[in-house]
Amino acid sequence: MIMATIIGMAIVTMVPRFIPAFIMEKISLRPWLNRWLNAIPFAALGALVFPGIMTVIPEQPWIGLLGGLTATIIALFNLNVIFAVVGAILTVFLLTM
């Protein structure tokens, strides 16, 4: 019974994830809608990262903002994301010493 429940939950979870993949390759979207949909991951990432930037040190939010600014500047040079992360970490580390 438990195994049937697990398999059933897996199927119920997988179906809504697979259906859009098969439908979207057959549908042609307008360019503005496609650009808007492509921007959603960046907006979600910003919504997840920004509160963390502000709470690195709650009493001094400017330290987190400078770390985020450092990561943004490094990212504008189209370097690998690991360099942006390490740059932000180093900035926050040096400012908290």
Rank of each mutant, 00 (worst) to 15 (best):
N34P: 00
P31V: 05
W62H: 08
I11G: 02
M97D: 02
V86L: 13
A4L: 01
I23F: 09
N78R: 10
V81P: 03
T70V: 09
I53T: 15
I73W: 12
T5G: 00
P51T: 14
S28R: 11
N38D: 13
T55D: 14
G67S: 13
V86P: 02
L95M: 08
N38C: 09
M1C: 01
P16H: 08
R30K: 12
N80S: 08
I53G: 13
R17C: 04
V81L: 09
E25G: 05
P16N: 05
N34S: 06
L29Y: 06
G46P: 05
V86S: 05
T5L: 03
V81A: 07
N34Q: 12
M14P: 02
W62V: 09
L94G: 02
N80Y: 09
V86F: 13
G68P: 03
I27P: 01
L65D: 08
W36V: 03
T70M: 06
A4Q: 02
A43Q: 10
I6E: 01
W62A: 03
E59M: 11
I53V: 15
A88C: 07
V85H: 03
P41Y: 05
V15K: 00
I53L: 14
L66K: 06
L76E: 10
I11K: 00
V85Q: 04
V86E: 05
G87R: 04
G52T: 14
V49M: 15
L33W: 09
V85A: 14
I57A: 10
T70C: 12
A39E: 08
A43G: 09
K26V: 11
N80K: 11
Q60N: 13
V85L: 14
A4T: 01
G64I: 07
F83C: 09
F77V: 13
A43V: 12
